[in-house]
């Protein structure tokens, strides 16, 4: 593929251009504590949210319950920390397990019944949204868990600049960034190099041919959805870390960004192809727009107008590029 036809490159250029624009308009955009560190945390959360959706887009499926899977995971973590007093890592693992199981459940229903993933996860979303509020009312004061594990605070407030050996301190990078990076790398390697990820993609590309090539199609569907649940749970954890609370509202705003990142990054809804890097760039782009417009005193709700326009523009450009590429290809 020629360089100009790479959608990731366009996204990167747009990202850099926007950062330059916002910095020119409001130098505060480059303010480390005010903008850059919170921006890193937000990008981290929404990149992982995007990956949670990407995990099932690889199959040509959707997960309409990403937000609620995140919320259930976060609830499990909060409960474990508050009532059982477990360590940071143990609680995280418990929560991720819950997310994985929820995803696997959705995948199981889809692969066994053959019902459209949109419907199954939509129904699951309805069911979970009710359940979550009920659970929070029963186990907390109705809003959030009180008890937090050791280390949660550092995850929220610290950057590597707070850790020094001698005179050498780390860069101003939030502690959640490397956590998200691990997820990004893991998912990237999974779909690029691992047999499991490749077989999931082949199942998405052509399920019948996949089955006739000896791929256990049903397990792959369950595994992809389980991965989606796992990543949703992880995103829930990162958001809770950023907010400093395991609350009922976690995941409420996940659905739209979960599609924005992958779609901006060039992942098809049809399945069979994903772009992990594109998803991260897509998530970065949306968050930069949010932050930048916010600094320019736009109201939060109004920002959506611009996000939507960027999405539409990016998609149309992508389309134009395809058409041009097709024409060029046809002439050869």
């Amino acid at each position: 593929m020629p360089l100009w036809a790479n959608p990731r490159l366009g996204l990167l250029i747009l990202l850099v251009a926007l950062i330059a624009l916002f910095t020119a308009l409001r130098p505060a955009f480059m303010d480390v504590t005010l903008t850059l560190v919170p921006l890193q945390s937000d990008v981290s959360v929404y990149a992982v949210v995007g990956l949670a959706q990407l995990a099932v887009l690889s199959l040509g499926h959707m997960n309409m319950a990403v937000g609620r899977m995140a919320a259930m995971s976060a609830f499990a973590m909060g409960l474990a920390y508050d009532r059982l007093g477990v360590s940071l890592v143990t609680g995280l693992l418990i929560g991720l397990l819950v997310g994985t199981l929820l995803g696997a459940l959705a995948g199981l229903v889809i692969s066994r019944t053959g019902v459209n993933s949109f419907v199954v996860t939509l129904a699951m979303d309805f069911a979970l949204v009710g359940l979550i509020t009920i659970l929070y009312t029963r186990f907390t004061d109705g809003v959030a868990f009180g008890g937090l594990p050791a280390g949660m605070d550092a995850l929220r407030n610290d950057t590597f600049a707070d850790y020094c050996t001698g005179d050498v301190c780390g860069p101003e990078i939030s502690l959640v960034v490397p956590l998200a990076l691990v997820a990004v790398l893991a998912v990237g390697v999974l779909f690029r190099f691992s047999r499991l990820g490749r077989e999931i993609l082949m199942t998405g590309a052509n399920g019948r041919a996949a089955e006739l090539s000896g791929i256990p199609v049903r397990s792959r569907v369950v595994q992809a959805h389980a991965l989606s649940g796992l990543l949703a749970g992880f995103a829930g954890f990162l958001l809770a870390a950023n907010n400093g609370a395991f609350s009922a509202s976690i995941g409420d705003a996940f659905l739209l960004p979960s599609f924005l990142g992958p779609v901006l990054g060039g992942t098809l809804l049809a399945g069979g192809a994903v772009s992990v890097l594109g998803t991260v760039l897509g998530a970065g782009l949306t968050q930069v727009i949010y932050k930048g417009l916010n600094l320019l005193q736009f109201q939060l709700d109004q920002l959506n107008l611009y996000i939507g326009l960027v999405l539409l523009a990016a998609l149309s450009l992508d389309r134009v590029r395809h058409v041009v590429a097709d024409r060029k290809g046809a002439r050869v």
């Binding site: 993609l201 052509n206 019948r208 041919a209 069979g272």
Partner: peptide, 9 residues
């Protein structure tokens, strides 16, 4: 086309 190949791969 439908069972043997992954056309877009």
């Amino acid at each position: 086309k439908e069972e043997g190949l992954f056309l877009d791969q």
